[in-house]
């Protein structure tokens, strides 16, 4: 799910189209709300409230009974529903393999490629210090 929350809804939907999906219903229609984001004093101390973020959530049930929950930053209810659907599929013996292979793995590869590119661009701005030689004997 950590991969899906960082993907676009349209990319998840596109990947899901390659799977013959089982029948499923919305157990809970997507709903937008807020989550208070917390930091820690000094980065590693007691928690404090930093500020809120918009979050969308949904729940989906497969005809075979598996229930999936979807939570994601933002207000894209369709994305929350797709994540919930994936969460249900991953619990299904029949679909878990296909979901990993056809949906999550390629999205993970794209996410890692984006992160690697950013890391490489960042690395180029790392400072190389050199020591000035002082002219004394």
């Amino acid at each position: 799910m950590a991969v899906l929350v960082q993907a676009d809804a349209s990319d998840i939907a596109g990947r899901l189209r390659t799977i013959a999906l089982p029948r499923h219903d919305d157990l809970r229609l997507s709903e937008n709300g807020l989550v208070m984001l917390r930091g820690r004093v000094g980065g590693d101390g007691a928690p404090f409230n930093l500020g809120e973020a918009t979050v969308s959530r949904a729940a989906v049930r497969l005809a075979t009974g598996e229930v999936g929950f979807g939570y994601t930053l933002g207000r894209d209810g369709e994305k929350a529903r797709l994540i919930a659907l994936c969460d249900a599929l991953v619990q299904s013996e029949e679909f878990a393999g296909a979901l990993e292979h056809d949906v999550i793995a390629p999205l993970r590869a794209e996410l890692h490629a984006r992160q690697a590119q950013r890391a490489a661009q960042t690395a180029a701005t790392k400072v190389d210090f050199y020591t000035m030689v002082r002219g004394e004997g």
Binding site: G33, L34, V35, L37, R38, N49, A53
Partner: peptide, 8 residues
């Protein structure tokens, strides 16, 4: 509000 996040 759905709740609070785990501290980042």
């Amino acid at each position: 509000r759905f709740g609070a996040s785990e501290p980042v």
